[in-house]
């Protein structure tokens, strides 16, 4: 027994090293899972406050661009409102289908922390559980999809960016109306890959890719990007498709968190079917 202790004592630094590494590897694996650690990320109050102070300072340097973007969006929204009112008046709709209108609710949030150059990028936003944000909600901007909420604290949330090699988004090729999957390859933050597009689909350059709405995280028809390059190798089952994201992630400033009101209902009825 004494010799055993002697052995451990002689190699104590190696065993400490081993102990620390086991803890770290366990943490890495935990963190890669969808629901993970609650405290050691940027939604942690102390870290989030430091970052949000720094982002407040940084914000001043991009105010004019931000302003232009918001003004453009305002104009676009006003146009849509006018059109909608016209349609409503023309059809004299007194009663509106409530399920259709309220199936998604939007919460606007500011990006306080963002990265595009790592392989697993995360975004921190300044809305948390106090504002009704919960894990699993979709995050979009006025230009397209952004990601999915991973963890929330009271005032901040961490979002898994689309620029994360583990993140897949169910998407639709609009012109061919064909289902596929969007995934980032970890290299260029402006482009993503479109996977599982079989040979028989007729692809064209500049085809629009939108979300499919089949996973109930993202609403249907949110912009993802446009096809800029595609290639069909001789023996390959699927196309190699490059899609340019419509949202430039390096310029992300304000986003909308989407809560799917019908998600719980949809999931529960689907689970029922799967169980049977």
């Amino acid at each position: 027994m004494g010799r055993l202790f002697q052995f451990f004592y002689t190699y104590r630094s190696f065993f400490t090293f081993l102990g620390f590494e086991v803890i770290c590897i366990w943490l890495v694996i935990q963190n890669n899972q969808y629901q993970s650690s609650k405290y050691f990320n940027t939604s942690n109050e102390v870290a989030a406050n430091i970052i949000s102070t720094s982002s407040n300072v940084k914000e001043y340097f991009g105010l004019s661009d931000l302003n232009n973007g918001l003004a453009a969006e305002n104009a676009r929204l006003r146009e849509i409102v006018v059109q909608q009112q016209k349609i409503l008046l023309e059809n004299r709709l007194s009663k509106i289908d409530s399920t259709k209108l309220k199936s998604f609710t939007y919460t606007s949030a500011k990006v306080v922390n963002n990265s595009v150059s790592l392989s697993k990028n995360y975004i921190t936003i300044n809305k948390g559980s106090d504002d009704g944000v919960a894990p699993g909600m979709a995050v979009i901007s006025e230009k397209g999809i952004v990601g999915k909420v991973k963890t929330v604290s009271r005032h901040f949330s961490v979002v898994i960016s689309v620029l994360n090699v583990n993140e897949q988004v169910s998407s639709l090729i609009k012109s061919a109306n064909y289902l596929s999957t969007t995934q980032w390859d970890g290299i260029d933050p402006q482009f993503v890959d479109l996977k599982y597009v079989p040979r028989h689909v007729k692809l064209r350059l500049n085809d629009t890719i939108v979300t499919s709405g089949y996973n109930a995280v993202f609403p249907e028809g949110i912009l993802v990007g446009v096809v800029t390059e595609f290639d069909l190798k001789k023996e390959a089952l699927f196309y190699d498709v490059r899609v340019k994201l419509t949202q430039d992630f390096a310029q992300l400033s304000y986003v909308d968190v989407i809560k799917s009101v019908l998600k719980v209902e949809k999931d529960s009825i689907e689970n029922l079917t799967i169980k049977k």
């Binding site: 630094s13 190696f14 090293f17 620390f20 590494e21 803890i23 770290c24 590897i25 366990w26 943490l27 890495v28 694996i29 935990q30 963190n31 993970s36 650690s37 050691f40 990320n41 940027t42 942690n44 870290a47 970052i51 990265s115 790592l118 697993k120 995360y122 921190t124 961490v158």
Partner: peptide
């Protein structure tokens, strides 16, 4: 761990730092 908190990559920087510390 502190750096990981800011990078949202829990365990990653900690493991590499422990490695070079060793």
């Amino acid at each position: 761990i502190v750096i990981d908190t800011f990078y949202d990559s829990l365990g990653l920087h900690a493991s590499t730092m422990v490695l070079i510390a060793y």
